[in-house]
C-alpha cells in the first residue's frame, strides 16, 4: 500500500471519518515490522489495540446456580421439618401401653397394702395410748396437786 494512501487514511482516522474497513487496513499496515520513522507513534497505538483485542477471559462461566439455590431451598425445608419432628417427639406425651397400665395398677395395690399396714400398727399404738389415762388417774390419787 502506498504511503500517501496510508497518510490520507490516518488523517481521516483522526477525524473519526474512517469506516471499519479502513481501520482494518490501517491495522494491517501497522502490524508489519517496518514502518517509516514519522509514523512510528501510530504503530504503538495500533499495536496496543491489537494486543488488547487478543486478551481473553480465562475463567469458565457457570450458568446453573439457579438450580443450586433451588436444591438448597429443599434441603433447608427438609432440615426444618426434621428439627420440628424431633422436638415434637420429645415434648408430646405418648399413650401408655397395656404393660405400663398393669404395672401402675400393681404399684397402686402395693402402696395401698403398705398404707394399710401402717394404719393397723398405728391403731395398735392407739390402744397402748389408752393406758396412759390410767397413769394419769393413779398419779392424781398419789400426788395432791395444787389446783
Amino acid at each position: 500500500m502506498e504511503l500517501v494512501k496510508i497518510e490520507n487514511l490516518l488523517e481521516k482516522y483522526f477525524e473519526g471519518n474512517t469506516s471499519l474497513e479502513d481501520e482494518k487496513v490501517l491495522q494491517t499496515y501497522f502490524a508489519q515490522a517496518y514502518v517509516p520513522a514519522h509514523l512510528q507513534e501510530y504503530q504503538a497505538m495500533f499495536a496496543y489495540f491489537s494486543k488488547n483485542k487478543a486478551e481473553v477471559s480465562t475463567q469458565q462461566i457457570q450458568v446453573k446456580p439457579v438450580k443450586k439455590t433451588w436444591q438448597l431451598g429443599w434441603m433447608s425445608i427438609a432440615a426444618a421439618m426434621l428439627i420440628l419432628f424431633s422436638i415434637a417427639y420429645v415434648l408430646i406425651p405418648k399413650e401408655p401401653t397395656e404393660a405400663e397400665k398393669r404395672e401402675a395398677q400393681m404399684a397402686l395395690v402395693e402402696t395401698q397394702k403398705a398404707f394399710q399396714l401402717i394404719s393397723q400398727n398405728l391403731n395398735k399404738g392407739n390402744n397402748a395410748i389408752a393406758y396412759l389415762k390410767d397413769y394419769e388417774v393413779t398419779k392424781n390419787k398419789i400426788f395432791k396437786t395444787n389446783n
Binding site: Y13, F14, E15, G16, N17, Q40, E41, Y42, A44, M45
Partner: peptide, 21 residues
C-alpha cells in the same frame, strides 16, 4: 455524538504520544 468524541479521543492520544516521544 460518538464521531466527535472518538475523534477527540484519538487526537488526544496522538498529541500526548508525540509529546512524550
Amino acid at each position: 455524538a460518538i464521531r466527535v468524541a472518538l475523534s477527540r479521543a484519538r487526537k488526544t492520544i496522538r498529541e500526548k504520544l508525540l509529546k512524550k516521544h
